[in-house]
Simulated assay, not measured.
Amino acid sequence: MNKQSKYKAFRVEEKDGNYISSIKEIPFTPLEKGELLIKVHYSSLNYKDALSSIGNKGVTRNYPHTPGVDAAGTIVSSESNKFKVSDQVIVTSYDLGMNTDGGFAQYVKVPEDWVVKLPENLTMKEAMTIGTAGLTAGMSVLRLSEIVKPEDGPIIVSGATGGVGSLSITILKKLGYKTVAITSKETEIEFLKKLGADEIVLRKDFEKMDKKPLLKSRFAGGIDTVGGVILENIIKSTHPMGVVTCCGNVASPKLDLTVFPFILRGVTLIGIDSQNYPMTYREKVWNKLSKEWKNDQLTEAADEISLNELNEKIALILKGKLKGRTLVTLEV
């Protein structure tokens, strides 16, 4: 067990209806049966973390709270039969960082059922460059690739400069798919080309597409991260027997569609629930991300920050101005 009595955490507190974040010292609490205490080496910044930090009650109900839906570290104390002290592990999603104190801290206490052993071919830094965003991208690509093959045509990816979108493009490229990236950021076209996107479409143009129930089929499949009109137009533009996955609703949770893409073209829409994805599939995706899907330049495009720099990056992600992955280092 760690000999310290307290540890540092990025703590969000509610004061008179305002949400204020600062670095605080938090006391350790005893482990219960099946729990692990993990010394966090790296976390990463996700959109949910930003929402939690500004008091979004749909993400976090009670404050004070420590956000951080991702963590990679070393077990320092264990009340589990599955894991032992010194195991290097990954924790992503479930309730971590939402209503359970998360990875923006030097230590996290979690149930054993949330934990995956760090694959041999991944460092903790690489694992957090992947994080929930990469796991979600991996889940999306896995489901899509079960039905659609590279020779079937291009895959369109929305929110392409974000974590899920950018990592989806790199995995798809690795597997031989041609990709079309949707972005609202004209300044990031070169960034998307460097990721491997074969074509870039501006969001404003894609949203203005015809309101007809069906559009000209252009894509074998799609990975959507934003919802709303973008998802509608992806579905309406997908080839017969194509596949579209969806994992986000930042644009809108609503769809204004007819059933025609589904019953006239046989398009399949697959929802991706990264929060509660079954452990068997999580381990399968992590295994692929550490081997055949691994990007050798994985950490090159990642921005590494400390807890003290989180507020600045949170402000950027909430404005839609953050690209790629942002790592949070807890190493001293």
Rank of each mutant, 00 (worst) to 15 (best):
M209K: 02
I169K: 15
R203I: 14
A181K: 12
K193C: 14
D198R: 07
V180G: 00
D224E: 14
L214W: 11
P213L: 14
L172W: 13
G222H: 05
E188A: 02
F219C: 08
V201H: 08
T225G: 07
G221C: 00
E199S: 07
L192C: 13
G222R: 04
V201C: 07
V226R: 03
G222Q: 01
A197Q: 10
F191I: 10
K174Y: 04
E188T: 00
T225Y: 12
L172C: 14
D205M: 10
K193S: 15
I189H: 00
A181P: 08
A181R: 13
D205L: 04
R203E: 15
I171C: 03
K193P: 12
V226D: 11
S217H: 05
K211L: 00
K212N: 13
G227V: 07
K173E: 09
K193D: 15
L215S: 09
T179I: 15
V180T: 05
A197W: 07
G221E: 01
P213T: 10
S217I: 03
E207A: 03
G227C: 01
L215Y: 12
G222M: 06
L195K: 07
I223E: 05
I189N: 03
E207H: 02
D198N: 15
L172G: 14
L192T: 10
V180L: 04
T170N: 08
P213Q: 11
V180S: 01
K178W: 06
M209T: 01
E188W: 03
G228A: 06
K204L: 09
M209S: 03
P213Y: 10
K194S: 02
K204N: 15
L215H: 06
G176R: 14
I171N: 02
L172I: 09
L172S: 13
E190G: 04
K173G: 03
Y177M: 06
K216S: 12
L202G: 00
T225K: 12
I189T: 04
K211C: 00
V201Y: 12
V226Y: 05
E188D: 02
R203Y: 14
L202T: 01
R218V: 04
G176L: 13
L215F: 11
I223A: 07
L215M: 07
K212R: 12
R203W: 13
L192P: 06
K174C: 00
E199V: 08
G176V: 12
A197V: 08
F191M: 11
L172T: 13
G196V: 09
F219S: 06
L195A: 09
L202S: 01
R218K: 10
S184V: 05
L214K: 09
D198G: 13
D205H: 09
L202I: 00
T179Y: 11
T225Q: 10
L214D: 01
T179L: 11
K212G: 08
G227R: 05
D198F: 09
K173A: 05
T170K: 14
I182T: 00
A181D: 13
K208Y: 04
F206I: 02
K211I: 00
R218M: 14
L192A: 12
E199C: 05
D198C: 09
T187M: 11
K193R: 15
